[in-house]
Nucleic acid binder design. Structure first.
Lengths: 234, 234
DNA sequence: CCGATGTTACGGTCGTCTCCGAAGCATGAT
DNA sequence: ATCATGCTTCGGAGACGACCGTAACATCGG
């Protein structure tokens, strides 16, 4: 059985404030150095290094040596999903009084951000809604489907879902939904969401905002999103 | 934003060994008394009481007074899903050497058990496979669908999915898959999985095994499962 | 080769949290 | 009313773990 000891170890690792902050910093899917993560966690590099070693040992993060730097990233999609799950529970009883004035950083996050490997925030939800509206997808809290027309649409944009479709001869693609903590609505995640997100980045439709999980929609992106999906992200 | 502080608090609560054991004991979806949970956690009632109070405050468990007993259960499906996520990560790097001889208790768990509100183990996977085989469902790691014929089949058994279908006029039901830790294969979870599980219990096809999440398939259940789904759980 | 930058190892201090004993409250039975 | 049971609160002992000095160790650029 998955011993409760192993369960407890993982949860404990994720539960320490400094480590939790570091894991959050990695939730944009990129790989960061120990120094950057130390700043994110509010601890000294030595302390951060120790934390990272433990998390690497436990399989929460993966390290990649590159010259004099060691890049750390979340070890797997499963880790990101685990964190989503914890956030879901944490969010469900948070914000006793809804803060009226949120900072500009928070505003940017609510507008558009990455959630490990896919898009979230108003952009992510708008994209999902547009696909549903046009009949290209069905999205519900428990599951989602990309319809044949949706597969075609994405293919026409050059988004390669071949790995998803080649093996099985079915045009309909089941994919994972993700409940957005700021919008409280489901959006597209999983392999399809990841492909969509990386395509937006590759095409220069969005670009990452330094030191945050937020992303900015470029002028080119605004135009492309309106043309291909008919959405305008406010 | 879902502050990292709130995240850390939840993860820390779940990470303490005694609390983790108590949460695991609640993963069968039932409500247990503080005393039972104290035994499950290997601590004295006083200690357990303190833990339970904290977890109730944080929204991990819900309490229900009934006479001189106070029944505790997982507060929501979200909590169960969070735990599944943590278990997934914990399992991914567990069992360095695959234990050859597992106890009879473990064997029963691998054969059939509940996973919060749905069925898992060989029974859960066999049920899922049978539905897929017959074209009643599509199940993948990221999402699952109960096809119209599957909805009909369950309806003919008296499984009420009305709450799921009434609002929208669609026979196809999207539902959540759950990766089985013992079988490493996805099975049916979510509302559909829950309905299936409670029906099996209500019809006496399975019954809970005392002090465990394992369930036993009754003689009546064996017959029913073979007749309706064509499966024989070994 | 030699500094600069970044990462790891060690030892001691400190705070936090778990845990149980004992006592205090409820509820229900006798 | 009185007792029994189950749960909770209180207080102190103990353990665990985080944290930061200092210092050693890699890697890279000059």
């Amino acid at each position: 059985m998955v011993s409760t000891a192993a369960f407890a170890e993982i949860a404990t690792l994720a539960g320490e404030p400094a480590r939790a902050a570091m894991l959050h910093a990695l939730m944009d899917g990129r790989a960061l150095t120990a120094g950057e993560l130390a700043r994110a966690g509010g601890v000294t590099p030595q302390t951060a290094s120790g934390h990272l070693a433990r998390m690497a040992e436990a399989g929460l993060v993966a390290v990649e040596k590159q010259g004099r730097h060691r890049y750390h990233r979340l070890a797997s999609r499963a880790v990101a999903q685990m964190m989503e799950g914890i956030m879901q529970v944490a969010a469900s009883r948070a914000v006793p009084v809804h803060r009226l004035t949120v900072g500009p950083r928070d505003a940017a996050l609510r507008r558009a951000r990455t959630c490990y490997d896919h898009l979230a925030g108003r952009l992510g939800v708008a994209l999902a809604d547009a696909l549903v509206e046009a009949g290209h997808a069905e999205i519900e809290p428990e599951a989602a489907t990309l319809m044949p027309s949706g597969v075609d649409l994405l293919a026409s944009l050059g988004i390669d879902l071949a790995g998803q479709t080649a093996a099985r001869r079915r045009a309909r693609i089941l994919c994972r939904p993700c409940l957005d903590w700021s919008e409280r609505r489901p959006h597209l995640a999983g392999a399809v969401g990841a492909a969509l997100c990386s395509h937006c980045l590759a095409e220069g439709w969005i670009r990452r905002i330094e030191g945050s999980r937020a992303v900015a929609v470029t002028r080119k992106g605004e135009e492309a999103l309106r043309r291909h999906f008919g959405i305008v992200v406010i």
